[in-house]
Amino acid sequence: MTMKTTDDTATGQATGGLWAFEDRGHDPVSTRTLGFWLYLLSDAMIFAALFAAWGVYLHNTAGGPTIHGIVHPLYAFAETAVLFTGVFAYGLAMSAVKRAWRGGALLAMAAALGFGAWFLGMEIHEFSGLAALGAVPERSGFLSAYWTIIALHGAHIALALLWTGLMLVQVLWSGFTEKVVYRLLNLRLFWHYQAVIWVCVYVFVYLRGAMR
C-alpha cells in the first residue's frame, strides 16, 4: 500500500480550480428515485423476515387447518393476473407521461386504480372465506404467518391506491412539474415492486400449499 495522499493529476490546476462556480446541479429527479429505491430494498427486508418465519411456521398448524386445506391456486392465479394487469396499466401511464399526454396518463392511472381495487376485493373475499372456515390468524402460528404475509402485501397495494389517487389529483392540479414527475417515477417503482413481492407470495405461499 503506497502512502500517497495527493493526486498528482490535479496539482497542475491553478488556484482558480479550488472552487466550482457553476452550480452544476445535482439531479433532483434521480436523487429521489435512488432514495426511494433504497427504501424499497429496506421494505423488502421486512418481507424477507416474514418469509424466513414462514419457512418455519408452515408446519406449526397446532392441529388446525393446514396449508393444503386453505389455498386455492387457481383463484390465486386469477389474483395474479389482475394484479399484474394493474401494474402493467401503471407502466402504460408512464409511457403516456413520456409523451406528455396527460389524458392518457390519467386514464391509465385510473385503470391501475381499478385493477388494484379489484385485486384487493379478491383478497378480502378470500380472507372472509377463511374466516368463515375458522381459519383465522388467532388459530395457529401457521395461520398467523399466512395472514400476515398476505395482509402486508395487501396493505402495500392499499397504499399504492391511495398514492395513485393523490397523483391523479396532482397531475390535474399542477401538470407535469418536476415534483409531480419524480413522484410519478417513484410510484412506478412502488407498483412494479408489488409485482415482485407477489411473485414470492404466489409461489412460496399459494403454490407451496398446492404441493403434496
Partner: peptide, 17 residues
C-alpha cells in the same frame, strides 16, 4: 440545486419508459 433538466419530461428516467 437547480435541475439539470429544465423540462422534467426530458429526464432520462422518464424517457426510459
Amino acid at each position: 440545486s437547480t435541475s439539470t433538466h429544465p423540462n422534467p419530461l426530458d429526464h432520462p428516467e422518464v424517457r426510459a419508459a
